[in-house]
Simulated assay, not measured.
Amino acid sequence: MKLLLVEDDVALHTTLSRSLGRLGWDIEVCSDGRAALGRWRALQPDVVMLDLTLPGRDGLHILAQARDEGLTTPVLILTARGMVGDRVQGLNAGADDYLSKPFDLDELEARLRALYRRHAENYSDASAAPQAPSGFHLDKDSGAIYHDGQVLALPPRELALLQALLARPGQAVAKERLFELVFPGQDEVQFEAIEVVAYRLRKKLQGTGAVLTTLRGLGYLLKLPA
């Protein structure tokens, strides 16, 4: 696994580099918020561990810009900001998981493995899926979704949701099933979080002709143009 750790605490990133490095993982460290996005683009890591309080630029701003650029790397936020509002803000900005400092190294390792595994499974599901109609295409190598030859810049959660809906276009998919696919094994996430992901995906689909419809009591349905 190739990891990018964006953290300015020297003692912490030294400890994490040594501990995770013993697992055979490749750890790249960036301690400056202003340089983080450039390192992210260049490295193309499997997972990003991101602190929020950084010199030069706040971690939430880095994350928001990365998602706007279409960088879909799973992100685990590591921060001393442990309030519920902080976690919600981070998740809404596009983070995939959140771990408050201080944390247990075994828990960190387990969460990183889960993010990596889920991201790999999303790509595997995309490669196995048939080509979608109406100008949509699932790239079997990258897992990216294209519309009329242009890649849709989607964060991991919106990508997972759209992949699930494209597998059954025109059919209702239960919210419970979608929640399992978008938030696998994340029992701490509230069930209503799937509505936030659906709202963001609906905005991303504007202009494609596809319509994401909410079916009360049933789930969601993706209508594709003829």
Score class of each variant (00 low, 15 high):
residue 142 S to I: 13
residue 87 R to F: 11
residue 183 F to L: 02
residue 116 Y to P: 05
residue 20 L to G: 03
residue 141 D to K: 15
residue 148 D to F: 08
residue 162 L to R: 06
residue 82 G to C: 09
residue 31 S to H: 13
residue 192 E to C: 02
residue 58 D to E: 15
residue 131 Q to D: 15
residue 53 T to H: 12
residue 115 L to W: 05
residue 105 L to P: 00
residue 172 A to K: 05
residue 213 T to Y: 14
residue 219 G to C: 05
residue 209 G to K: 11
residue 18 R to N: 07
residue 155 P to S: 15
residue 199 Y to V: 04
residue 206 Q to F: 01
residue 76 L to Q: 08
residue 105 L to K: 02
residue 109 E to I: 05
residue 83 M to E: 14
residue 176 E to S: 11
residue 73 T to Y: 02
residue 113 R to I: 09
residue 42 A to C: 10
residue 95 A to Q: 07
residue 133 P to V: 01
residue 203 K to E: 07
residue 164 A to L: 08
residue 80 A to G: 15
residue 8 D to V: 02
residue 128 A to S: 14
residue 45 P to H: 10
residue 58 D to F: 00
residue 166 L to M: 11
residue 120 A to D: 07
residue 63 L to A: 07
residue 144 A to P: 03
residue 70 G to C: 09
residue 4 L to Q: 04
residue 29 V to E: 12
residue 55 P to M: 09
residue 86 D to T: 05
residue 210 A to L: 01
residue 28 E to D: 09
residue 136 F to P: 01
residue 122 N to Q: 14
residue 114 A to L: 12
residue 191 F to S: 06
residue 212 L to R: 04
residue 5 L to A: 08
residue 152 L to D: 02
residue 35 A to D: 13
residue 160 A to R: 13
residue 181 L to Q: 07
residue 23 L to Y: 05
residue 133 P to G: 13
residue 71 L to G: 00
residue 146 Y to E: 06
residue 14 T to A: 12
residue 128 A to P: 00
residue 129 A to H: 10
residue 163 Q to E: 04
residue 65 Q to D: 11
residue 215 L to W: 09
residue 8 D to K: 07
